[in-house]
Design a protein around this nucleic acid. Sequence first.
DNA 1: ACCACACTAATTGTCGACAATCTAAAAAAT
DNA 2: ATTTTTTAGATTGTCGACAATTAGTGTGGT
Lengths: 209, 209
Amino acid sequence: MRREIVEGSIVQGSKISEPELAKRYGVSRATLREALNRLESCYLVERKANVGCRVVALTAERLIEVYQVRSSLEGLACRLAADNMEPEEIKGLKQLLNQHLQTQRVKEGESYYQEAGDLDFHYRIIQGSKNAHLIHLLCNELYQLIRMYRVQMGMVGPRVSKAFDEHLAIINAIENHDGELAEMLMKRHISASQANIQTKFDLLAKQKA
Amino acid sequence: MRREIVEGSIVQGSKISEPELAKRYGVSRATLREALNRLESCYLVERKANVGCRVVALTAERLIEVYQVRSSLEGLACRLAADNMEPEEIKGLKQLLNQHLQTQRVKEGESYYQEAGDLDFHYRIIQGSKNAHLIHLLCNELYQLIRMYRVQMGMVGPRVSKAFDEHLAIINAIENHDGELAEMLMKRHISASQANIQTKFDLLAKQKA
DNA sequence: ACCACACTAATTGTCGACAATCTAAAAAAT
DNA sequence: ATTTTTTAGATTGTCGACAATTAGTGTGGT
């Protein structure tokens, strides 16, 4: 509905006035409250009883917390995917990676496609775990928040090619049904991604000082 | 508010009629919808757009899915707790375990206290991880669902003493700040608990046939 | 006899208004 | 001048009613 706005154009930590935004979107307050509930379950807004709603603030501490959880859960998803993914799913995953290679070569600097592609890659593996609860947790709840981090931080360039290699290694592990390895590789991959955004944060803090 | 009812006295998979329950509790439909949203975020009810709300059905497949996730997340929590728990927190945890030992000896067969105690034990370790996101995920979202499983299935006896030993080993690992070991022990502990409920399920299915 | 279509009934989603609560500013007392 | 209290404003939570969509049933056609 208006995830786009939360992802980009509404400032972090800003108070949300229900009647204001209700008029802003031309809907009733009840409808907007429903929407806020959805956003709350995605961790994009935080509410306090009888106080109000604020857009979530993107702090480094929060990033670490989220990525610790994400690393653990996607590691699990990857291990399960190594056991449960169908051959044609694995085949499709490899094709997807090849597509990324091509678009990546064409648009060396631009990282947007890689970004979307990276999320798509992770998305498919999560789906491959065949664990509905896990899929819901990662794809519905955490997905938006992670996207928010990446969009607002901006994905940096040199990691693109390295991420590609890591994706390749993960696919190989899944293809060999080596769940242990796949889990470990995915955990490292996400930790690297976390470290990447962390440096971005530090850079931003230094710029401020 | 009325988690008690969902945990016990409302049948699984039963349709939820909003106006009916609204009258049942003497509140408006808007209030009840808010409550349903809360229950949905705890995975106790499931809704479909323009169709309605049903109480979640406790199946063996779902149990496995939830416990796979729980094992991974509580393993993470345990590893973090090994690094981040304060000495007095560890001390309190040991005291809690001693209390369990006493009540357990007194009420050999009765497992209710052990159950509540077990959850409390896990609860404290999760808090000890100091990861707010992880704490929310486990204590607010998953906690109720797991409680529902355990209450409706009924905890079996012989596992009580074994669980106590496992808890003890976990505390020792945390006290030694051995995160790796603590994580592994917790994962095994939860897997054992899962297997325990699984057998309960199989027994129930055999009874039916 | 079976399938398709339409109609009715119920349920969900949405709306505007009212009451309770909290925040903030202004005034008074120390 | 600072602190406390009171008061006003606004915002959230709650309520009952209306509109839209859906499920079930009954009828008609093939």
